[in-house]
Amino acid sequence: MTSILLVAERDEQGEINQSTLQAIAAANGLLDAVVTVAISGEAPASASALAVEKIVTLAVVSIADEGIYDQATAEISALVESTSPEVVIFSKSDFGSIVGARLAFRSDSAFAADCIEISNDGGDGVSVTRPVYGGSALAEFEIASKPAIVTLRAGSYEAGNETGSPSIEAFDSGASVEQAASVTGTVAEARDGVRLEDANFVVSGGRGLGGPEPFSVLTDLANALGGAVGASRAACDAGWIDHSHQVGLTGKSVSPDVYIAVGISGASQHMAGCSSSRAIVAINKDADSNIFKEARFGIVGDWEKVLPSFLATVRELKA
């Protein structure tokens, strides 16, 4: 038997989010898996049909803890201490990355971040695979100590269709946490059009654009397609476009139907944020650039000459 604690997260509607459903599929793939899902606050109705053994509801943490996660870490540490799971799984989200790491170092446990695969059929321990060197390589690790604490990259597993009838119980550590750092406010940045993460079309620009002005052409194309504008880290760091547009390992992850990369070399750090797109389209002057190894369609050429006719034809097709 492998006892697994899976820390769930919610989407904007309060339902169990997609990454958590994928993590449940990963957990159920372990040998003789017995899965407990921990969720903060009252479990949503859909949770009662999850294909897991048990659901544990945790006391709701305060808004001031959001982003700091002192209370969340204390609560989940107490739950791990009292239930001694062999594996603890988080999504590789802001929450999971921070709480997972803090839990591991607080309890002197092994931690593997951003895993794309987890298994335990090869011996005593748990085996995980994670991308390293910005995605240029994969590393397979064995974790012998218990618990093994991991975060899973979204999209690494497909959510399953199985259902179950888990028992539901509440857990409250009773611990009171004195928070040293506190959130005093939240500033939402203005955004026009579709959210980058939700867009079906993303038009991204990189170093090859040479300056900030060409992003207006990319914006025209994104508008014609009903999509959003993205960028490589190089373009953002150069100040050509705001960092909120950055796609990649340290930016946003997108999975549109079509990802159009203009003047982007396709470094693995960038591809980590867009490789799950349905089709990648590359426009780049350099035929040897890495983006052509990742793209489904490509044009070797000068974007300044390619884009106007591409945009005009898109407008005609959409008219």
Binding site: F292, F297, G298, I299, K305, S309, A312
Partner: peptide
């Protein structure tokens, strides 16, 4: 990768849109 090659770069741009459609 499927490379789109037109008579010139402008033509490639047009062909790319048609291919995506």
């Amino acid at each position: 990768v499927e490379l789109i090659e037109g008579e010139d770069e402008a033509d490639s741009g047009k062909k790319l849109a048609l291919r995506l459609r």
